[in-house]
């Protein structure tokens, strides 16, 4: 790259852009720092110096949040609900995407359009009928009810994504499997599911985020026994808030998602489809 020399003017321009951009990027990091920093402070230290760097780090807030504020119980709820919802979403959207992209049946296009249309309706619009349905089904205050709700609300996007992904795969793969004697369920299990991995992993991450971070639906369905995000929101008092306790809760809630992302970031298989047909 030695021939590629940057003139003085360009270099000044580069710096002129880079520095403000770096500062803007830092503003995204600051809340993370704020949460971590204050989670380690005692309430007293926080009141004396809100923005200073922690001087006497303590894990008291984490212990308190986990035990006394019931976050351990809420955490378990969130894990169960998220894992099962995401599993249901992946299986159902892969099956539906396979059907909509590959199979030919009456009203296929209409069904796809209806799914697309439901993608455009905000959750808030259907809250009242949704709540009444949950009560009518006797699913209020059950984890099954929340799992079902998440699956229903996030399914349209997932089905849409899987349908587009599977539409891009060569049809001959399915035809070859059919000639090889695979039944439809076997085509799905042996061919479509492994071929869909890149899209399914993306979906898994996105839906995990949605389910884990949701407050609104969870607040409606699980009113007695809460999920983590609702529990953390409840740590805020009307007049006073124990900020170190709240930030400790936030750190506890964010940790699993960050870890999950770091693990799967490496496992996102790109180009598994390479070699299926002549590239």
């Amino acid at each position: 790259m030695s021939e590629f020399t940057v003139g003085k003017r360009q270099r000044r321009l580069l710096w002129g852009i880079s520095v403000p951009m770096a500062l803007i990027a830092l503003t995204c990091v600051y809340p993370v720092f704020f949460a971590l920093n204050n989670a380690l402070k005692s309430n007293r230290e926080y009141i004396l110096d809100r923005f200073g760097i922690v001087s006497e780090p303590t894990f008291q807030n984490f212990v308190q949040a986990w035990t006394r504020s019931n976050l351990s119980e809420y955490f378990f709820n969130s894990v169960v609900v998220t894992v099962l919802s995401v599993l249901a979403l992946i299986i159902v959207s892969s099956l539906a995407g396979f059907a909509l992209a590959v199979l030919r049946f009456p009203l296929r296009k209409l069904i796809f359009v209806v799914i697309l249309a439901s993608l455009m309706i905000p959750v808030q619009v259907v809250l009242v009928p949704f709540y009444k349905t949950i009560i009518g089904l006797g699913l209020l205050n059950t984890r099954a009810g929340l799992i079902l709700s998440y699956t229903a609300f996030f399914l349209p996007f997932s089905v849409y994504l899987m349908t587009s992904f599977y539409s891009g795969l060569p049809r001959e793969l399915v035809e070859a499997a059919r000639i090889d004697g695979a039944k439809l369920t076997q085509v799905w299990w042996h061919v479509m599911l492994p071929m869909g991995m890149p899209a399914l992993i993306t979906l898994g991450i996105l839906n995990t985020l949605y389910c884990w971070n949701d407050i609104l639906i969870s607040l409606l369905v699980l009113q007695d026994n809460r999920t983590l995000m609702v529990g953390i929101a409840a740590l805020r008092g009307e007049y006073t808030t124990n900020v170190p306790l709240l930030t400790a809760g936030i750190v506890l809630a964010a940790a699993p998602i960050v870890i999950l992302y770091l693990v799967f970031q490496r496992k996102i298989v790109s180009g598994i489809a390479v070699g299926a047909v002549k590239g």
Binding site: E175, A176, R178, I179, G181, M195, G275, A276, V277
Partner: peptide, 20 residues
């Protein structure tokens, strides 16, 4: 009759090998 029951095998232009 289903393709698999016709006693045929087919070779496709795009090979259609299962990549995984």
């Amino acid at each position: 009759v289903e393709p698999a029951q016709r006693g045929i095998a087919m070779v496709f232009q795009s090979y259609a090998l299962y990549p995984h």
